[in-house]
């Protein structure tokens, strides 16, 4: 790989990193929000590095005409740059949610004293899927008042389900999309909006059938389903 190509590639790589963090916010489809600053800093370093190389080459070009060569394997770095620029792959959706269904994300640990009871109010409570799932497990574990008959509003995308209803889904990432696993809540009482459609579902806790001994998947009786655009932060 020639020197001009090396510098060009470094600048392109840095520009791509800066573009997805500062310009579009697409980095949220790949990594956690906290990654914004290190990623932008790395992008800036790459742009400066490539730019400095270009400047130096321009100055040096008058002095000596020969070029130094870098490793050919570096060409592969063009692949993620082009992927970001041309394809802009979307956040993971129902395909990955179904594939990783056998190891769903553990809900966040409840507060030490357990979740407080949820009062019935006129306005629905906006709740993360993680909290809803955590509350649903506690509710099935002898504390039904943590969900009760309160109305909640959950946000996620639809994933098909065999055997009635559909899943309201949100992928959870610990570090990057490579480790994403799903939060899933079964939605009853409303037709599926179609796989990968983002929706906001208002509804109440779907109680498991009486007399059931094992824990069931958290579920919701939907009252309203509104389609929404994909949120800026697709992962929970």
């Amino acid at each position: 790989m020639s020197r001009p190509a090396q510098n060009l590639l470094l600048v392109a790589l840095g520009a791509a990193a800066l573009w997805i963090t500062l310009a579009t916010g697409e980095y949220l489809s790949y990594v956690r929000p906290g990654f914004r600053i290190p990623l932008a800093a790395a992008g800036a370093v790459l742009v400066v590095l490539g730019g400095a190389g270009m400047l130096r080459d321009r100055r040096a070009a008058s002095a000596h005409g020969h070029h130094h060569h870098g490793p050919g394997v570096a060409w592969l770095l063009a692949a993620p740059v082009v992927a970001v620029a041309v394809v802009a792959p979307p956040a993971l959706g129902s395909f990955s949610a179904t594939r990783t269904a056998s190891r769903p994300a553990p809900p966040p640990p409840p507060p030490d004293e357990g979740y407080p009871a949820l009062p019935v109010t006129a306005e629905p409570d906006d709740m993360s899927l993680g909290e809803y799932i955590g509350r649903a497990f506690q509710a099935q574990d002898g504390r039904p008042e943590v969900l009760g008959d309160a109305t909640v509003r959950l946000t996620g995308f639809a994933t098909p389900r065999k055997g009635g209803g559909w899943f309201l889904t949100r992928m959870v990432i610990a570090c990057c999309a490579g480790d994403a696993v799903p939060f899933r809540v079964v939605v009853h009482g409303a037709p599926s909006p179609g796989a990968d459609r983002w929706v906001r579902v208002t509804g109440t806790w779907h109680r498991p059938p009486a007399g059931l001994r094992r824990t069931t998947e958290p579920a919701l009786d939907a009252r309203r389903v509104i389609r929404i655009p994909r949120p800026a932060r697709p992962y929970e």
Binding site: V31, L92, F95, C176, A177, G178
Partner: peptide
């Protein structure tokens, strides 16, 4: 193929690269 599989592949591919980039740059620095 399956568009969703290709999308997921590309997303994970870009994600692994993006995720490692700052560590690579500052490790190399």
């Amino acid at each position: 193929l399956d568009v969703r599989a290709v999308d997921a592949w590309t997303t994970v591919f870009v994600a692994v690269c993006v995720q490692a980039l700052p560590f690579l740059v500052f490790g190399v620095a």
